[in-house]
Amino acid sequence: MTERHIIRPSEANDRDVYEYAVLQVVPRVERGECINAGVLVYCRARGYVAARTHLDEARLRALDPTADTAGIRAALAAVEKVCAGGDGAGQAAGDDAGRRFRWLIAPRSTVVRPGPVHTGLTADPEAETGRLLDLLVR
Rank of each mutant, 00 (worst) to 15 (best):
R15H: 08
T69R: 13
F101K: 04
P27I: 11
D68Y: 09
G86V: 02
N13K: 07
F101L: 03
N36L: 04
G71R: 05
G94W: 06
G86H: 07
L63I: 00
R8Y: 12
R102G: 00
W103P: 00
S10Q: 09
V22E: 08
G47I: 09
V82P: 00
G120P: 12
T69M: 06
E57Q: 14
A62T: 04
G94K: 08
E57R: 15
A106I: 02
V22R: 10
P125L: 10
A45E: 11
D68V: 07
R61I: 07
L121N: 02
G130H: 13
V41D: 10
G71N: 08
C43Q: 14
R28T: 09
P107H: 08
A75F: 00
F101T: 02
A12Y: 02
D95F: 08
C83T: 01
A70C: 00
R46P: 00
E57F: 07
A75G: 01
A89N: 04
A75I: 00
T69H: 02
A77K: 13
A37Q: 10
P9G: 07
A93M: 08
Q24S: 10
R44L: 05
L133G: 14
Y20C: 11
R73S: 12
I35A: 09
L132C: 10
A12W: 00
A84C: 07
R8I: 08
E80H: 03
A97N: 05
P114Q: 03
G85A: 10
R15P: 01
I7H: 12
A70L: 12
T119N: 15
A67N: 03
A77Y: 05
A97E: 13
A21Q: 05
L63T: 00
V49T: 15
A21L: 05
T122P: 05
P125Y: 15
A62E: 14
